Amino acid sequence: MRRILILPAVLSLVWGLLAVLLPSAANAAACATAWNAGAVYTGGAVASHNGHNWTAKWWTQNETPGSADVWGDQGSCTGGGSGGTACSYPNWVAGQFYAVGSIVRYTDGNHYIAVHENPGYDPVISHWYWDPYTCSGGPTNPPDPSGFVVGQAQFDQMFPGRNSFYTYSGLVSALSAFPAFAKTGSDTVKKQEAAAFLANVGHETGGLVHIVEQNTANYPHYCDPNQSYGCPAGQAAYYGRGPIQLSWNFNYKAAGDALGLPLLTNPWLVQQDAAVAWKTALWYWMTQNGPGTMTAHNAMVNGRGFGETIRSINGSIECNGGNPAQVQSRINSYQRFAQILGVSPGGNLSC
């Protein structure tokens, strides 16, 4: 039988071709953290799914890699991608008691955290008892380029049912008007101020749901004709708008002058432009004492506590026994938001 002699050079060529045509698992990239349906991903975030790495082209949540245009396929991967045990929370069970802080996986694959103890109420129906929870199996809160201490995912977790008008991008855009907001003092103070601001505006708007004041009967009352500039937009034009429900012609005039916006003649800008709406709320927070003795910003950065911010916004209407239920509602939101940001709420919570 004849033997065929294969030269070493030929063998080398054959193996090289095979390596190109049949890439081995060893050459595949390592799998990133496994994609999580409940996590929020921003542009550039990487997650693995079904043996491939995927890159998010823009903001996404609950859009499966491979079936949504938001994800770009980066090729096959091996190993890793397990997401750890952080996402291994128990399935929700109807009728089972849940203490505050309990985290469950709902039937839709998303996670929820109990913010009030309950006897197993449905998380997607009983929003008073449950909030959406972003599982830590993915890049849930990538840093924002603005340096804001609240990330997109945390903002979404705070306001899962918010009106689409109140965008995170609008808030971040408004920050440039008041660079000291949530950037003064220690990291703890910065997060406490952000939590305090968002808790108060959330309270004022029913969880960032209402853009304008709901009681239309009040609309004509917010015009003070004794001001030299009067009410050029009309008697009933200066009703409450935006995250902190800016009202009265003199407040629209002062806010407009401070922000370089024609709010006295065009108060409707506050309900039409998210960035403008957020700026008016920050203007009040940063510059107005209201019925209190200091601005809400100074209350937080000077250690006076969350209770003093309530006084600056609603004074005796709520404080000193005026409406303890409303005060407690604000405190509850503040404590929950502080927990989301991973910071202690501090003392002096009530007024």
Rank of each mutant, 00 (worst) to 15 (best):
R3F: 02
V10P: 00
S12E: 06
P23E: 10
S24A: 15
A29K: 15
A29Y: 05
C31Y: 02
T33S: 14
A34Q: 14
W35E: 05
A39R: 02
V40L: 10
S48Y: 03
H49K: 09
N53H: 13
T55G: 03
P65W: 01
P65K: 07
A68P: 00
G72L: 12
G72R: 11
D73V: 10
C77Q: 06
G79L: 07
G81S: 10
S82E: 14
C87N: 11
S88M: 12
N91D: 12
W92E: 09
A99E: 15
V100H: 07
T107V: 15
D108L: 15
N110M: 15
I113E: 11
V115S: 07
P123N: 13
V124L: 15
G137L: 12
G138T: 08
T140M: 02
N141Q: 06
P143C: 01
P145A: 02
S146M: 06
G147L: 09
Q152V: 06
A153D: 11
F155T: 05
P160I: 13
P160N: 14
L171F: 10
S176A: 15
L198V: 05
G207L: 08
I211A: 03
V212N: 10
V212R: 04
Q214S: 12
A217F: 00
H221D: 15
D224Q: 13
D224Y: 11
S228K: 03
Y229S: 09
C231S: 12
R241W: 04
Q245F: 02
S247D: 11
N251F: 01
K253R: 14
L259F: 04
G260Y: 00
G260D: 04
L264F: 08
A277K: 07
T280Q: 00
Y284F: 15
T287N: 13
Q288H: 07
G290V: 12
G292A: 04
G292Q: 01
H297D: 09
V301E: 02
N302Y: 01
G305R: 00
G305H: 01
S312Q: 03
Q328W: 08
R330L: 04
R330W: 05
I331P: 00
S333C: 08
Y334Q: 05
R336L: 10
R336N: 10
R336S: 09
F337G: 03
L341A: 09
G342P: 08
G346M: 02
